[in-house]
Amino acid sequence: MMKAPVGGAKHQLLRPSYSALLLCALALPMQAHAAGTVAGSTISNTASASFDNGAGTQTIDSNTVNLRVDELLDVTVASNNPSDVATTPGGTNQLLTFTVTNTGNGQEAFGLSTIANVGGDNYDPTITGIYIDNGDGIFDPATDTLYTAGSNDPVLNPDQSARIFVVATTPGTVADNDRGIVTLVAAAKIGTGAPGTTFAGQGQGGGDAVVGSTGADGQDNGAYKVSAATVTLVKSAVVADPFGGSEPVPGATITYTITATVAGTGSVGGLAITDNIPADTSYVTGSITLGGAPLSDASDADAGDYNGTRIRVQLGTVAGGQTRTVTFKTKID
């Protein structure tokens, strides 16, 4: 048997005073809230009183007050890329990821759009598509849904999120370290506006739809940062004649040195150095070196080869800030 502690309230014949209540209301900040009570549900309140007026304990109920919960339209957009996404000049299918969350309390469709010319950046990425994730969190154009405004607007339940992929092409003209910002905007299809704006009868459950604190739209930025690299080649030659001098006479050996310098924050891929053997000279067999180490003439596992007319050293991917030095020799005919 529950024992109700007596206390906490003394009976008073109080003149009602709301002053304390009001002060309290003004001091309290408006609280942020998650989706909350589902639109269309009813809040029902009934109090009861028990007492003994000499004839034993009696219990009575108060009247019941019913309040219908209307639909709040609220949505947030958040970038899932905590830092800039690296891209390269001309790069295609460059990916930004966002999360769109229905923070309202009713099922709602949201229109998506992007803004590529936001400002505050160096270039405008070319948006090639907006995709709605299939739930695995990984972008795959074959299984994710290409978004078309008005035809497959994502419909989200309260507190439900959708992962959105924005796919863009980076212009070929961008320079190293350039940034390009893309904004993703999500807006309730019923409408947006100042908080409190009401769309009569359009809420879930037959009530009104009321714009919440987000204005029924949300947006966030994602950014690309260009990682580019440039290659500089410097070629030099040293002649050694058969007599200990440096005259370019028949029989003299020419040692060519080619230095490739890669600059920038990016890297270059598939970098190969080729050089034709000059006329009136003959390649000195087995003379290719890379970084001082000899390479074979055959087209094989090592990076160098000679095919009878030119030498080639395949350097593959070289990061910015690095240099590669290739040498080879020819003999003057």
């Binding site: 009934t46 009183a49 003994d52």
Partner: peptide, 15 residues
């Protein structure tokens, strides 16, 4: 008559 052991209870609506 005076009402003794007077107790008012209000369950909070779940929402």
């Amino acid at each position: 008559q005076p009402a003794d052991k007077f107790v008012i209870t209000n369950p909070m609506p779940s929402a």
